[in-house]
Design a protein around this nucleic acid. Structure first.
Lengths: 225, 225
DNA sequence: CTTGACACAGAACAGGCGTTCGGTTATCAT
DNA sequence: ATGATAACCGAACGCCTGTTCTGTGTCAAG
């Protein structure tokens, strides 16, 4: 009988168990039992599996809900995938106002149209907040580096800090636009994301309604034609 | 004792169980047991929980791995979130070649740097394929509507069909670029995504190395400055 | 009123499953 | 050699859990 003594870190056996838990979770949507781990990793005794599991827990690779069946789970950034749903409230285009999330229907699970975002993708601690998404219609947002069909994810807010990318409704111009927001002495500067393009200025007496702050843009490149 | 008789569809009790399974799964990373469902949904008997679970299974709301502990799971488009990891192999910028996924290190779980994508976000059946991601460095891709800091997700391929957005290495020009690809009579047309910009043409005798097809672009709008 | 479906309770059975404990073998420093 | 330690094995204990069976109260149709 061969027994390899690993100096430090994860041995081959540890890695095999980790991989098995991951693939099992992926396939079955629930964690494996100790005995199942043993079978697939060529470990004949449940105590040995427990032995390794203890080590993996100490080293922080897994977490365990003791005493309960199938209470093993991988740790790491997002082991099996923390994600949340963002309701798609409508479309955003130059000529029309922005649909605002007036009603409190952020119930992600009942929203008929929604997009799923991995927690790990979200910018710093915007996680879990009330967000909504809009689908870009038309090519009027190209100066914001946003194309037709893109999905913009917004955080509803009325005010913005300098540097935020915001969705604004300029009622004087009857126009919706996505721009970086800067407050200057006596006017607002709306800076396009495309560095080659020039900013537009809005006097403070003109109406400027900030509808939300852009958190993320997702483009599915399906096909051009 | 009040017993509400629901005509069709999901009753209040069904919905409560569904919600509980979702929240429990979210919190514990593994499904609840029948008894746990009962406790939190004010059902005193395990048989009644089983009774409802049978109905929810028949109506397609849940799936069950019979005989095994905590074998309940929600169905639906992506109940708890099917996602996969895409390794970030490096950066893409105009002046440098594209890092190709030569070695078969698509082992998503060992990749130190990776992004997680929800299955539901992926374009038609690109799912589960070998994909890799690159982080855009610099503003040289703005004509492709891709900004500094954006993450592009690619499918490795050598050839492209007309209309695909591809990452190409033009060795004659010593340049990497993202363009829509079109094969014409005696040359290739590389069309920028930005409709206001003009295409560039590459003769068929010039070298044009397609490194991958762009599947998705993700932009985290953190902050401008 | 009877019948049958539906919604529910409670108990019991059997197997699943985590845990623990007593042993065994191999490697290594003393 | 020898004791310490790491890497195992097997079995047993006992709670956890899914399943099933019997029984009860309600409601609507016949």
């Amino acid at each position: 009988m061969m027994m390899v003594r690993k100096s430090k870190g994860l041995g081959e056996r540890h890695q095999k168990i980790l991989d098995f838990i991951a693939s099992y979770q992926r396939e079955h949507k629930h964690p494996p039992s100790i005995r199942e781990i043993g079978e697939h990793c060529d470990i004949s005794s449940t105590s040995v599996v427990n032995y390794y599991l203890d080590q993996l827990e100490k080293s922080g690779n897994i977490e365990r809900d003791r005493k309960i069946s199938r209470g093993v789970r991988l740790t790491g950034p997002t082991p099996l995938g923390d994600m949340f749903r963002v309701p798609v409230l409508g479309v955003i285009q130059a000529g029309e106002p922005i649909p605002v999330p007036s009603n409190s229907d952020f119930n992600s699970f009942t929203a008929e149209d929604s997009v799923e975002i991995a927690m790990s993708l979200m910018p710093t601690k915007e996680k879990g907040k009330e967000l909504f998404a809009l689908k870009v219609q038309g090519e009027s947002m190209i100066d914001a580096m946003v194309n037709d069909g893109d999905i913009v994810i917004l955080k509803p807010t009325q005010d913005a800090r300098n540097g935020d990318m915001v969705a604004v409704w300029l009622s004087d111009r009857n126009e919706t636009t996505l721009k970086f927001f800067f407050k200057e002495k006596d006017k607002y500067r709306l800076q396009p994301a495309n560095p080659t393009m020039s900013p537009i200025y809005v006097n403070k007496n003109e109406s400027l309604e900030i509808k939300g702050k852009v958190v993320m843009v997702i483009r599915k490149v399906e096909r051009y034609m």
